[in-house]
Design a protein around this nucleic acid. Structure first.
Lengths: 195, 195
DNA sequence: ATAGTTTCTGAACGTCGTTTAAAAACAGTG
DNA sequence: CACTGTTTTTAAACGACGTTCAGAAACTAT
């Protein structure tokens, strides 16, 4: 009693999200257009709007996938002593983000997409912060490890942010990776040498 | 032997730049459109294109002004001991950038405007880095003050970057100002306590 | 007056996100 | 079989964007 749907909506969603990610990766946020996206999946833009509402929703779904991958990557880090583990995390984070720098811009650039961040958004971030805080607490039980974790994350973010938009060379000839390692070293130095 | 120009080009330029800054301030990069800009100064967009070439050039001129103001603000900081001076610089920088967060996005967001940065661009940044390095060298003559200055700037930039696009609350409940102070404290702690 | 020259405008081009009227494709009913 | 009802999908449209450019406008020199 109705026109049958031509596409499996579940399949369509994953295809759209995958195509969106490819476009982001290759050309940054500017390349994620409704027309390019619909052409890439062989559907008209109207169909995508029927499924996602608008383009920001597509970007949000890409970000959800990215955050899931980030969580997985962190889980997969080899168990190690606090210090080497922290370095591995910093290095992994930088490499993860810069190998997805188009996606990164979708995550951190432009006006905020939503008034309040989705739960999975905050959970991923806080999971990451907790993973940073734990080794810091082991290294220096006296400090406020959560506060230090926030500060360390922000410091690393600074380097990644500049690198992701091609502006790190404005400030330094070193790579974001090296700067992240230095940030870890500085933090460890500061908290471990307090009598 | 020619149509006389209706506008003083020098005046026109400063008016366009001022209007562009207002638009940026009030609505971020998205609000800086050729039509809004030309309406604001009472000129058609063609005239602006004749003077500036394209909108990126207008943005670049706004940035030049911003950088000049930044330099002036730094020069105006009261002379002080290395440590308090560093704190004052960090605080001043954060306040400067966040009170211009629309302009900030034009400075640091989006794909790079030019292949190579203009000279005044690099001079301002390097001037700032040198101003950071000097007190660091006084505090700990043994360290590579220039390298530490880059790292400290990047760390502060991380907080400002998140705050400027309304995403700092994703990571921390503290302000960019507080995080910047902590970054300074961490750096001083790390370099001053090396035997 | 007329011709020459430069300045400025306004309309146009193609692209963007998004909306929507209509076409398409079926199941149920007579 | 035709017709109706319902839902899905399309294609064209809308307004706004950056940018370009033919030509109107406004003067000087002859």
């Amino acid at each position: 009693m109705a026109r049958p749907r031509r596409y499996d909506y579940a399949e369509l969603r994953v295809e759209v999200i995958r195509a969106a990610r490819t476009l982001l990766q290759e050309g940054g946020p500017a390349a994620l257009t409704a027309r390019a996206l619909s052409k890439a999946v062989g559907v008209t833009s109207g169909t995508i709007y029927g499924q996602f509402g608008d383009l920001r929703a597509v970007l949000l779904e890409v970000n959800r996938d990215t955050f899931n991958e980030l969580t997985q990557m962190i889980e997969a880090l080899p168990n190690d002593e606090p210090e080497p583990w922290l370095y591995a995390l910093a290095e992994g984070y930088v490499e993860f983000m810069l190998s997805r720098h188009g996606v990164w811009q979708g995550l951190f650039e432009g006006p905020r997409v939503t008034e309040k961040f989705p739960d999975w958004y905050m959970e991923t971030i806080h999971g990451l912060l907790a993973r940073i805080a734990k080794p810091l607490a082991q290294i220096a039980p006296a400090t406020d490890a959560c506060a230090r974790a926030e500060e360390l994350f922000v410091a690393v973010h600074g380097g990644v942010a500049l690198a992701a938009v091609g502006r790190l060379d404005m400030v330094s000839s070193r790579s974001a990776n090296v700067l992240a390692r230095e940030a870890v070293a500085t933090m460890i130095g500061a908290i471990s040498k307090t009598p």
